[in-house]
Amino acid sequence: AVTLKFHTFMAPQSNVWLTMHKAWMEKVEKDSGGRIKFEGYPAMQLGGTPVQLYDQAKDGVVDVVWTLPGNTAGRFPRIEVFELPFMMNNAEATSKAYWEYVQTVAQDEFKDTQVLALQVHGPGMFHTKNKLIKTADDLRGLKVRGPTRQITKMLGFLGATPVGMPLPQIPDALSKGTIDGCVIPWEVVPSVKVDELTKFHSEFDPAGGALYTTTFVMAMNKAKYNSLAPDLKKVIDANSGLETSAWLGKVQQGNDAVGRKTAVDRKNTIHTISAADAQEFKRKARLVEVEWVEDMNKRGFDGKKLLDTAKSLIEKHGKSTPAAAGGKKA
């Protein structure tokens, strides 16, 4: 039997670890008839930082990792397209698009590892302490914590004061008013107590697209993959790729319902920004897209083509994928 070390930054009690990582590992163990065994190490138990996880898989420090490629901005520039504002509304479909995008126009982005899955989380949205966000103007002067480079930029264009801080500092910063709000998907809400610490939540009508999402990658050490017996390789292959990516995206967006319920139970105000009201946000946020395209051009890629490819792939898979559960409808 082969033992694989699975390493990630997610906490052992988190939904991602329990419903996605553990579920995936158990399925692989079962499909291999017990010939593949996993040792799971959540919460960076084997050292390093989340940013370094990808290199740990590349270098064979561990065998499989699940991490945020967007943490190292300059390293995977082309996949950042999925983190631009108002790209998606369905994590399952967008995860499929992300997988296909990397296979077709960004293949060498993850060439150092055996990529098992590429996925995104459900719709990101506003959570604010004292003021409900209905229009873009409502953001003026608010101190809002941004998750990624592109979204932090967008918050500035929308008139907010973007604040950069690591995710675990959100509860403290919210409770003391160091920030007035943050943008995260529902799924993350309970783990950083945003349901307790804010009163207002502003979702976007899926028809107009979600504010943003974040990309994830599950990758395996190449040499380890190549050393597997052919039938075990087949087991890994069957549990990776487009369908697995879609499944991870779907499960993660499904977990949004859990987070949303905590806010409902606390009788917080949940507002849906209509597709019409979203226009003003989009108009101001468009500059993020423009600058990203310019940045790609500078790096020697065809920025416009990459953006169009991502958009058309999201649209294509959106048509063939059922509307997402979780989020708004829960």
């Binding site: 084997l46 050292g47 390093g48 370094q52 290199d55 740990q56 270098d59 420090v61």
Partner: peptide, 9 residues
């Protein structure tokens, strides 16, 4: 390889 990055981490 673990040592490559641990001091930075």
């Amino acid at each position: 390889f673990f040592l490559n990055t641990q001091a930075f981490a």
